[in-house]
Design a protein around this nucleic acid. Sequence first.
RNA 1: UCCUCGGUAGCUCAGCCGGUUAGAGCACCUGACUGUUAAUCAGGGGGUCGCUGGUUCAAGUCCAGCCCGGGGAGCCA
Length: 438
Amino acid sequence: MRYRPGEGGRRHAGPLHHSAAVRCTGTIVESQGSGQRVEMQVQQVEVLGDSDPNAYPIQPKKHSLEFLRENAHLRFRTNTYSAIFRIRHQVSFGIHEYFNGKGYNYFHSPIITASDAEGAGEMFRVSTLDAKNPPLNDDGSVNWAADFFGAESRLTVSGQLQAELAALALGKVYTFGPTFRAENSNTARHLAEFWMIEPEAAFMDLHGNMDLAEGLCKHLIARVLQHSADDLEFLDKRMAEEEKQKPQQQRSEMGLIERLKFVLEHPFERITYTDAIDILLRSKPYQKKQFQYPVEWGVDLQSEHERYLVEKHFKKPVIVTGYPAQVKAFYMRMNGPGDFGYTDKGPTVAAMDVLFPGIGEIIGGSQREERLDVLEARMDAMGVPKDQMWWFLDTRRFGTVPHAGFGLGLERFVLFVTGMGNIRDVIPFPRTPKSAEF
RNA sequence: UCCUCGGUAGCUCAGCCGGUUAGAGCACCUGACUGUUAAUCAGGGGGUCGCUGGUUCAAGUCCAGCCCGGGGAGCCA
């Protein structure tokens, strides 16, 4: 690109390179070019910061997302990523807007925890001990009492347990912060560091929980449609281009904006786990033996089953409730006769998973077990150490109350609203196994 | 962690059954031309073929191990 001052001028001011920062002075005039209303007739150009085209990795052409991921420090400069991160902002802001509007208090659960009983997955250790020569006990084990916190401590996998404490005081709270899982998960839907929103409300049951979750998703979608129309338009076109490359069968029926509006305008399907199993048993892929994993009451739903329910059978977001107790966490409320989701096929809990097309589980939540004796029995049965959890059990000892909540994965939601395919593309600096650069 | 595909120029890729000096498009540099917007035309520079070892007269190509990435699965948000 060359800059020529004045009309028909030939005086070259030198090359202007891609990504150079310039300050231009000139006159804004009506443009003769197509696709733009105005343009600047430049009288003066000042190069604030040049950019060496032989060294600058981003070129004015279409790059692969994999390549841009490896240049995560520069990828915001592309139109795709700047659109994604503006939308991520709108979603984040909308979360506060939604909960604030409903009288929820933004509650800061701790990032560092010394309890190992949250049961949501492998945890990262936090320590200031010398990794090569830690202080040892007489029996050769590491002396954690000498560590910074005086106990073995880790990064949180969930703020839920603390949010429960707060909900039983403030009534309605939500957390919104980073969460860490040391799982060796290598998928387009998993991060080692991700952001999670966890509302928790006293006197709320499973139905209220479902209403809250659906309301949140729809509020966020509406907000993005309203405030990020240009960026959605861009991503919509981008997705349409990508779809053209795919074989007919794999193409999605709706464009991005069309899909967002569809989800906004239709109620989420609400079914029990038991009904879901029945639907799967009657499904074509089951009868043609196309499912890789078995379908029978008592086993957890696999990705292929969730995808069938959401993408083939209902073709919209689905909330599945009343899972078998054995596949869910200890703090979920046991269903008894008369409770929603109860069945004589086996013990179930008041769990709920919100499943979205293309992504799968975007929200996981439940009504919590508020009865001390039932909760303690569950903890014993599942090997959760009650002594470490005394503070959690105290909520059930001193004025317990029915309550419920859920966890929404921010990045998974942003994945859905941007139409992107890999979760590493909707967080600025993804942390995954073997990767924490930038 | 498992299955699968891949790693060749700055980027996207081709490179046959192992065989001479490893190619193309784009990008970049020089020049020409130009109300352009994926401009065009001519010329030019640019390579540790992921790493290590092995087989062979000869390895980008075959074999083994390792590293990294994509897609799928598990774990989950």
